[in-house]
Design a protein around this nucleic acid. Structure first.
Lengths: 330, 330
DNA sequence: CTGAAAGCGCTTACAG
DNA sequence: CTGAAAGCGCTTACAG
């Protein structure tokens, strides 16, 4: 059973292949009777068009790449899930491209994006993204970045209001009576990372607290390192804000191994609001990024950017997800 | 700056396009001087071949689909990571296809696999996979399944020795003095799920224990439900084996919310050995699936199956990863 | 060793 | 409204 080609359908339906093509791609351009007949014949043969041949001919496809550094990071996994759904609704196929944070791999995917005639794409960075790396590809406003970018960057971006997110976390802790709040970084290079960190410092100053930042390692490991220091510290802060949920997981885990209990000994707030956080021990209080919304906006902005050539910047509002890793200061 | 085509390179190099094609695809078929010259000219123009046109012409591509139900499930995320690396090493591009466990979506990807001329593919199921759903596509031994399949299934498979895995967990708990060990299912339909469950029951019987199985809900929720029951139970088992790590996370979290501490009150063993388990509170003891190995074997079997038409079945050995969620029975 | 030609499976001006 | 023709960017027997 060989796959039927357009020519086979045309022969079976007794029309020219251009008519078959139109019946599928521009149905209004063919007489209804003819169209129905052609479509019926095609269906009976199990015919579908070759996306490859279509892409080659029209120089456009419905493949949209999402370029992420690491799919085992639950934030990117949730983002991918949301974007896949959003892309699917609009008739696109999301192609997940994982770079392992390697610039060569990224360039490879951008190249592939062009050779596959992708209409647009989305890139979510983990560390500093150098616009010089992708501007040569000339995607312009057809490539959206999931991060804040430098003010002189002229492509579309979608991000969350990180300053507000950190404020949500900080205010929550202050309201619980905490007067000494530390910050664990653990993400590096992105504007997102810088924004969160700076927001923390500003807030600490504004509240007359001495800022205390731990900034060793990346991800869960950063949390573990911070826990070491916290465990051995006199005048330990009563609360910690982690730059993201994975950092918070590592922190809580290592705190527990050292006999420190969350939230009894230390309150912890994460950032991301991952679904997995609900299954933490304790369930993690976290600044929730509207990931589904980010996915949808990412696709929307990319599509609009491809149409209009205009680069929009969307900043989404975070919410505080209060679960059980924060409690009143003792 | 328009992308150069093969004809542009041919013109610039003063040869026919067939020579350019050979210089790239069958370098031994062209005189060395000519080849070097062509390649140099091509490089100077930033030329690369169109994978689209190549695939259309040769009816083969290097795109290999990995079909998974849910990328936010860390097991599939880790599998995807491993497979991407394995595929990349062999010159293939892994295309991640997420089905959300929907049969229509799966069929769509299998269809795409054919129309993209994928040389082979890999599918990792979450629930029962009905061979009837994909056998019509006629992939034969070019589609490997990451699960044990029914004995009469004739495609290649790679899976872990689940019986042995459960035994590892069980024996570990028995060695710690546990005489009452429960099981939380939380995965459903796959042969993997059935094998783990049955192994537990067999082991309980062999050790003269009354089997106690919790089987409500899926994933983390299954763990939470089990925790409810455990918290309200007289003669609570001192240890629990969870069907996978995500179930274990939910279990430990909900146990904690009810004032039960792991491993002091209950020991918990997971299954998967996710990296994330190391950042659990406490770090999760788990039966480690050799995910990297599974990824590599999956690609290898698929490639060999495509070449030879033979379907191999690989069963990998699990290991016990002893972390901190298990302790001696009180 | 290299070139000319046919063709992979489509689309789309252009005629009629 | 439909057909005939050219062409998207390649590859590969076939000659020479």
């Amino acid at each position: 059973m060989t796959t039927p080609r357009i020519e086979d359908v045309a022969a079976a339906a007794g029309v020219h292949r251009s008519t078959v093509s139109r019946a599928f791609s521009r149905p209004e351009a063919v007489r209804q009777e003819t169209r129905d007949h052609v479509l019926r014949v095609a269906a009976s043969m199990g015919y579908t068009m070759s996306p490859l041949a279509q892409a080659l001919r029209t120089k456009s496809s419905t493949l949209v790449p999402l370029i992420v550094p690491d799919i085992t990071n639950p934030f990117f996994a949730e983002l991918a899930k949301a974007m896949r759904a959003a892309a699917g609704e609009r008739g696109y196929q999301l192609v997940l491209c994982v770079t392992e944070n390697d610039a060569t791999a990224t360039a490879g995917y951008l190249h592939a994006m062009r050779s596959m005639y992708a209409p647009f794409g989305v890139i979510a960075p983990l560390t500093q993204l150098d616009p010089a790396e992708f501007e040569p590809f000339g995607f312009g406003s057809r490539l959206v970045v999931i991060d804040r970018m430098a003010p002189d960057y002229h492509g579309p971006t979608v991000t969350v209001d990180n300053v507000k997110g950190i404020r949500l976390a900080f205010d929550h802790l202050v309201a619980l009576g905490h007067r000494s709040i530390a910050y664990v970084a653990g993400i590096v290079g992105t504007h997102t990372a810088a924004d969160r960190r700076e927001a923390y410092h500003a807030l600490a100053r504004a509240n007359d607290m001495a800022p205390l930042e731990f900034n060793e390692g990346i991800g869960a490991e950063a949390g573990e390192r911070a826990a070491e220091h916290l465990a051995n510290m006199d005048g330990r802060p009563s609360a910690v804000i982690a730059a993201n949920d994975v950092v918070a997981f590592g922190l809580i885990s290592a705190l527990g191994s050292r006999g420190l209990s969350v939230p009894n000994d230390v309150s912890v707030v994460g950032f991301d609001g991952l679904a997995l956080g609900a299954s933490g021990n304790p369930p993690l209080t976290s600044v929730r990024q509207p990931i589904t919304e980010m996915g949808r906006m990412g696709i929307e902005l990319a599509e609009r950017g491809a149409d209009s050539g205009r680069a929009e910047h969307v900043v989404l509002r975070p919410r505080l997800l209060i679960r059980s890793s924060t409690g009143v200061a003792r």
